[in-house]
Amino acid sequence: MRTTESNPSPSTARGLGLHVLLTLLGLAMAAPFLWMILASLKTAPEAGDPAWLPRQAQWGNYPEVFRVIPFLRFAANSLVVAGWVTLLQVLTSALAAFSFSRLEWPGRDRVFFLYLATMMLPGIVMLIPNYEIMVRWGLMDTFLGLVLPSAFSAFGTFLLRQFMLGIPRALDEAAEMDGASKWRIFWDVILPLSRPGLVTLAIFTFMGNYHSFFWPFVMMKTVDNYTLPVGLLFFDSEHGQVTHLLMAAVTMSVLPLIVIFVFLQRQLIRGIQIGAVKG
């Protein structure tokens, strides 16, 4: 979209119309979210009311969340688990993608096809055996048991491979001429050039795992090991009507993601422009 900036249209009216349309659509998309924030400021009886606005904003609901559940601990668990998964996935996927995109070895394409094929597998197929593996290895109720199964991804490998294919070969051929090892080419040439791709994968992975519900739900027993989505279920049957606290907790749980997105969205879009780095 930057490419056409050089030639702004003279018709302000149509531009303004566009902005008005976008504003309306944006508000429509944000409306449920807004309702959530407003509901988080209601009193308990008001939360059962269809009116949007609380009679008086109950900011006390937010500290109340911390009192009722160990919110910070859940959040820390979520962040740490999602952080590890992201880091491991980006690293292992980058290595694999390098192998698939830059190295020639016998059987490569067949192995890659196998990877691609597993992307089509419903995750639920693997659920039952994975659970059995966790039980065998004694990883139930541990962070390791949450991190490991998600740390290796065919999707990440695929995404980064596509990205790396777009990096001109001339660059690493030049490095090879200078006598650089494959390892050096990976670290010093390909990886820095793949940064937008890495960021994209990191964001996708982080968001996906921050929200993941079922696996932590089944795996974690100890309350102090809960991640946020599982911890939010605490609000059912706590003291009766707790919509307002639930909404406050959800609002807070979403904040880190918004911050990440606002800061990284340009990188994100650049990263998805597969093959955007042109020599």
Binding site: V80, L87, F143
Partner: peptide, 24 residues
Amino acid sequence: MKRFFLISVLVLTAASAALYWTRP
């Protein structure tokens, strides 16, 4: 880039350790 990965590993390790030692 290497430094970034290294720092991430350190931060995550520290955070995991902190979470581990504060279990009830």
